[in-house]
Design a protein around this nucleic acid. Structure first.
Lengths: 227, 227
DNA sequence: CCGATATTATTCGAGACAGTACAAAAATCA
DNA sequence: TGATTTTTGTACTGTCTCGAATAATATCGG
């Protein structure tokens, strides 16, 4: 049974901000025993695990083994399992955003811009040593988002951020005359997001990249011919 | 850590077909102590739980409580947790198919047929006492499909079944002159499936029905205007 | 009525789980 | 050097987990 998170109780028993004070770049010399890990790479390893197995199927022992940190260090650095999941998700979003943001506004023609976005998305979704990792937003929507309001809020934000990026992309295309003014930019953006979602899901089911690319190309044919 | 299912070993230790012999309709009188449960409704309860919490976060105790069957009865009727999950998924697919199959081939005009499909999909995805249950195929793709080949095969089958249903729907529309011959039925089918997937995901994130309907309407505008 | 059969109910056990307590270790500051 | 601070490593707790073993119960065939 998934417990609803009782925010009041939980927060009362938790130290205020605590966990994971990342060292400022202008190193003011930390005091005690030095860390045996690099918080950033440890968070990356945790993200890998969560993306592969999901929240419930990932144990703290797994995370401990993958990060090389023992359990108390994990708590000290990132808080409990849920906090670590949230931080992992934020990290995922930051990476995905960084990989795509420039392309949405690039000078290239619409179709090329979109094609590059989908190529990067496929890279993200199909990567992974043990199998395709899919889209963390989509996976989180399917699992934790229903019962955990905070996580749900982040997922909704992730979904709408993508919608908006596509919207801006299509508005730009209309200004550049690549799409007629009559085209419904919002509807096209939702279709573009939907195409992202469908390839993320199919990637998880190990549908080969060639097929996913064919789906993307078909979608781009329809979207770029909108009137 | 999610264990890969070792089919050989597992199947070797398991009684041949065993579990869940559903009573034939022409009741030949069962022999021993009568069941205190109706297998079909118990399976429905199990499906509800799995849809809400996913495989990993649903315990046998939860299932036992929800079905009213104690653990040994669960095993006797459905096998272990994984088998129960698989049977639940098959049940879900059967129900979804039954709810939609007639509409795909109905005489109504294309847009109306599609609108009715999406209305039913939204009913399925938004229903649930404790929150929207989403699409079980999508949720399973996000979780178990990567590591479990059998489950993955069922998920792929579910995805392609929907693609094919939409394909047939669009072929019919072309025959009826509702779409030009030049329209790419396969691409449109994938877009239609993508729209199903995106509303399933957003439903899980508690996006309200009105917004989902707006997304559907926008998608139908584009799809039905294809040339 | 008695035996066979099939289900239920109780209980157990070995292991995994999340989270914490505590002492040892390694660095800085004085 | 010695005191302080922070992290590490080990061990522990109580709970939950799945699956199975056992015994009690209820129906049917004869």
């Amino acid at each position: 049974m998934v417990k609803e998170f009782n925010c009041e109780m939980v927060q009362k028993n938790r130290k205020p901000p605590s966990a994971a004070k990342i060292d400022a770049p202008g190193a003011p010399k930390r005091r005690g025993r030095p860390r045996a890990y690099v918080p950033d790479v440890a968070l990356g390893k945790a993200l890998d695990l969560f993306r592969r197995d999901g929240f419930a199927a990932t144990s703290l022992d797994d995370l401990s083994a993958a990060t090389g940190m023992n359990r108390p260090s994990l708590y000290g650095a990132f808080g409990d399992k849920r906090e670590l999941y949230i931080k992992s998700y934020q990290r995922y979003r930051d990476e995905a955003r960084a990989a795509m943001v420039d392309i949405f506004r690039a000078e290239a023609p619409l179709r090329e811009r979109l094609a590059r976005i989908y190529a990067i998305a496929l890279d993200i979704y199909l990567s992974g040593d043990t199998g395709p990792r899919g889209c963390f937003t989509v996976m989180t929507a399917g699992s934790e988002a229903v019962s955990d309001p905070d996580i749900r809020a982040m997922v909704v934000e992730g979904l709408t951020e993508l919608d908006k990026a596509f919207s801006i992309c299509f508005r730009l295309a209309k200004e550049r005359g690549e799409l007629p003014d009559s085209a419904d930019g919002t509807a096209l953006a939702h279709l573009a997001s939907a195409t992202i979602h469908t390839i993320a899901i199919r990637a998880r089911a190990r549908v080969p990249r060639k097929e996913l690319e064919a789906i993307v190309n078909g979608a781009l044919d329809v979207i770029c011919a909108a009137r």
